[in-house]
Design a protein around this nucleic acid. Sequence first.
DNA 1: GGAACGTGAAAAATCGTTTAATCAGCGTAA
DNA 2: TTACGCTGATTAAACGATTTTTCACGTTCC
Lengths: 333, 333
Amino acid sequence: MQPRLKEIAKALGVSTATVSNALSGKGRVSEETRKLVIEKIREVGYRPGGPGRALRTGRSGVLGLVLPDISNPLFPALAQAIETAAERAGQGILIADSHGDPGAQSEALRRMVQRGADGIIIVPCRGTQVSDLSLPAVVIDSAVTPGNCVCSDHRQGGQVAVEYLQQLGHRTLVLLGQSRRSLVQSDRVAGMQDALGPGLRAETFWLEDGTPDLAKLVRRGATAIVATSDLHALTALTRLQGAGFSVPGDVSVLGFDDLSFSARITPGLTTLAQNMPDIATAAVEHILLQLENAPLPAARLVPMELVVRGSTGPAPAERPTRETRPQQGDVTT
Amino acid sequence: MQPRLKEIAKALGVSTATVSNALSGKGRVSEETRKLVIEKIREVGYRPGGPGRALRTGRSGVLGLVLPDISNPLFPALAQAIETAAERAGQGILIADSHGDPGAQSEALRRMVQRGADGIIIVPCRGTQVSDLSLPAVVIDSAVTPGNCVCSDHRQGGQVAVEYLQQLGHRTLVLLGQSRRSLVQSDRVAGMQDALGPGLRAETFWLEDGTPDLAKLVRRGATAIVATSDLHALTALTRLQGAGFSVPGDVSVLGFDDLSFSARITPGLTTLAQNMPDIATAAVEHILLQLENAPLPAARLVPMELVVRGSTGPAPAERPTRETRPQQGDVTT
DNA sequence: GGAACGTGAAAAATCGTTTAATCAGCGTAA
DNA sequence: TTACGCTGATTAAACGATTTTTCACGTTCC
């Protein structure tokens, strides 16, 4: 059994209020008794119990983190950054998975409130507005999301990606997205299209419409594939490699998010990484400011960072249609 | 502001005790007033507040999940399964990252206790014993871990992997592990070695000792690579493909854990998957049983499951050293 | 008619902590 | 001497729920 304030007080022959004051430095306690108290709590390893404190102060020291899909491979980096930032601020993290379902999302939010979370960090389901909850909240999504939002500048990331490929001499790109409804992905694609200019063409495909034949596109002259996620970039890369193309000799491949595997494949995947520590720190800080009723900073946009690895290189010099390499069918069943 | 028990009671002209009793069905409440209470709480959307209840009952409805590294790509599946299993049991999940450091791990455990967690699910750091904490706990690690443990049967997984390759006609294997100190990995390798028999050879490499030259090993006759993680299997697969080998035509590749990308590469990665839902359910159930002082089941071993995809196939018929395919150097810098 | 009993609900205690209100003792100034 | 202020600490209230105890009021039974 953990020692409680009452035990400490009894052992020292003082009241619980005095012990509490000594620890918080709030009331009036002589230096002498303060020393005694501190020594005692160190001796028995006392820590104020959460529920009692939460009940009295209204603060639990816990933040809720609501995600649309924990099994998303982007999640580890985000969760780790948020956990680290929160712990630094003395806050714990309560997680919940909305499974991409708006109903489950509101239910998760309600549970967070019920469990006494001090604030909520939410990565919303596609197409959901986070309505007014009775708690400080911050949204991690896309810049177009209204309200208290901290997120990567996905649009700028898209621009940087395309500009980088242009510098390498690429003139015909293939842009790959998963779903138009994802604000993050459409931001990224919009950024890519921003950076297109004279002499730089791009064809955009959404995987929700079906899978394009990348090998054919490359044979027709595309020299670089940009996917809105490393996951799709990886699919493209291994498919092209399996079809006999050289990456980046014949075609460059570029992704987003710097997922765990991206550095560990051959060639390493060039990618636009989110600055998770900055996002997490800003998000946690945003909640804490709201808790103190402090003036809030404007929505924070964190720049994305280009991580250059082996999957991108100069555009191939020769441009003619090449049929030299064998094309083997998809091996998977 | 959320409605409280007091408001409900006042609105109905009864005492808080009656409302509480009506909701829990514990005391003596007439059917009539119970109806009234239930209707009222539905009307105003009342939910009992966590801290108050936690303080009185000693139960917070929250479990701690302590991990050595949230950014590990295996984590999403585990965390999601545990969150789902916990939510089903009405429990929330408080996460913490020990960053692989035993000191940070004990600190994380202490914080969990302080925050009022009802129990703790812990994936321990390498080489740490989870000493007696004052809370119900369950360890997810390896079968050799003493104490309350729920985990995959990694050894059996290793056996299944090798037996499967043997059936495909493979006779010379390369076994790849990362670190000998990892109980999970050494279990898996041990299982693989268990399954070796006459006519089935295997050479084992630990990546902590350095990276073996897989291309050379394949040219010398190895026809299958088994890695203790999909991450290393992916590295091997892309490296071999980049070096001009056909997978699975020339060499089969097999991994563990069925990570997010494993199904999305070409060829799909054959792997031994952990049954995360079963593990999570068992772990949560184990905690809840401890909370009720119920008799505990023995340590639970959950079998691993072979997921066959495109990266494995019959051993190539011809065995002579082949130099026909071009070998290109490592493109990454 | 009074004791025993049953029922429904209120009153009060409790969990652990913080904090506002109070108090005893002491020194000092009017 | 009395009133006042300061200091250090105690007492008591409060947070929101649950649970034990008590209570009021009928009914039934001798």
